[in-house]
């Protein structure tokens, strides 16, 4: 009686799962059991606390910030009046906000399209076994781990108007007559940041697609060969359809990781000229750290995070369906 009174609700399903054990356990064993169960959670507790304090709490803090009116003067004074959704209405009525969303989609779309095509090409080439192919495809991945400020600076130098190597090359082979001042004009600045992003991400896309290519059963290709197909037909009717699910998840993943880019554009153009490359993360940063409109920055980052979360959930959902199939 005494023991059943002290049993915590958690003990009950545990006991139910092991019906063969004696119903009345000695007191000592039970204490040991609960100690080790507590011990289990001690392993995750520090990490959970850390993530809670430094990731989840800040994200909610951000949400909260977006519902208050916080700018430089009252931030320092510590006043943060609650204004409800007013900041959102203000942001949504500004063309600059919608412009940054459009620029983000343009930049992300352009980058993932070309990174996907180049990554696919590289994957098809390096999928074949030849001496050094493994090392070569790993070496390509160095562009992905290089500090983004380094790659941004190097591309800035290569695309420089008067003495950049890109202009010299394009003039050398006769594509352009006059040097192009890539980062000074809006449309070419967008092309520039897309080029450097594609350079960084294509090898990563290649690695992800390679995993998919290697999962295609070789028997399918052999059967197609027996049917007298040529290499193009096999690519068109075996590789492409077999790769479709993998390709879609890779595209989605690229979208998620490109949409959140900040460094590359900040280093190359700071969102300029004007706001020609002013993607949403740059817009949010400018609002908060250059104009000290913390609430406006928080609104932009809330919208940013909602888009990211929706895409991430879509990715989870798609990969889940894949597993079930």
């Amino acid at each position: 009686m005494d023991q059943s009174a002290t049993a915590t609700p958690r003990d009950i399903p545990e006991r139910g799962r092991q019906p063969r054990k004696p119903v009345v356990k000695p007191e000592r064993t039970r204490r040991q059991l609960s100690e080790s169960r507590l011990g289990k959670y001690l392993f995750v507790l520090p990490a959970v606390l850390f993530i809670g304090l430094l990731m989840i709490y800040p994200l909610f803090y951000n949400l909260n910030l977006s519902l208050h009116d916080v700018h430089l003067s009252n931030f320092l004074a510590g006043e943060r009046p609650f204004v409800g959704l007013q900041n959102y209405f203000d942001a949504f009525s500004q063309p600059a906000f919608w412009h940054s969303l459009w620029i983000s989609l343009l930049y992300t779309g352009g980058s993932i399209l070309f990174a996907f095509l180049i990554g696919y090409g590289l994957a098809l080439f390096f999928d074949r076994a030849f001496p050094g192919s493994g090392t070569m495809r790993a070496v390509l991945l160095v562009t992905y781990v290089l500090p983004s400020v380094v790659s941004g600076t190097v591309w800035r130098w290569m695309l420089q108007g008067d003495s950049g190597i890109v202009n010299a090359l394009l003039q050398g082979i006769g594509i352009i007559d006059e040097p192009v001042h890539w980062l000074i004009h809006g449309p070419t600045a967008m092309i520039s940041v897309i080029i450097s992003t594609v350079w960084v991400t294509s090898p990563f896309v290649m690695i992800l697609l390679l995993a998919g290519l290697q999962g295609i059963p070789p028997g399918l290709y052999e059967a197609a060969k027996i049917d007298g197909t040529n290499a193009w037909q096999r690519f068109r009717h075996v590789t492409l359809p077999m790769m479709r699910p993998v390709a879609l998840t890779v595209l989605l993943l690229s979208f998620i990781f490109t949409f959140k880019t900040f460094d590359n554009i900040y280093v190359m153009t700071k969102g300029g000229p004007g706001d020609a490359t002013g993607i949403m993360p740059i817009y949010a940063y400018d609002k908060a750290f250059n104009f000290f409109e913390f609430s406006d920055g928080a609104v932009a980052s809330t919208v940013l995070i909602i888009i990211s979360i929706v895409m991430a959930l879509l990715y989870f959902w798609m990969t889940r369906k894949e597993e079930a199939a």
Binding site: Y41, L65, V70, F262, Y285, A298, S308, I309, F316
Partner: peptide, 29 residues
Amino acid sequence: LRFTVLISLVLLLAQMLPTINLALPLFVI
């Protein structure tokens, strides 16, 4: 542990969020 799948998904999600989303509130905090 309980919630292993949920925790794993939260961790994966955490990586997919823009860094600027953390930088702004962390600066204020």
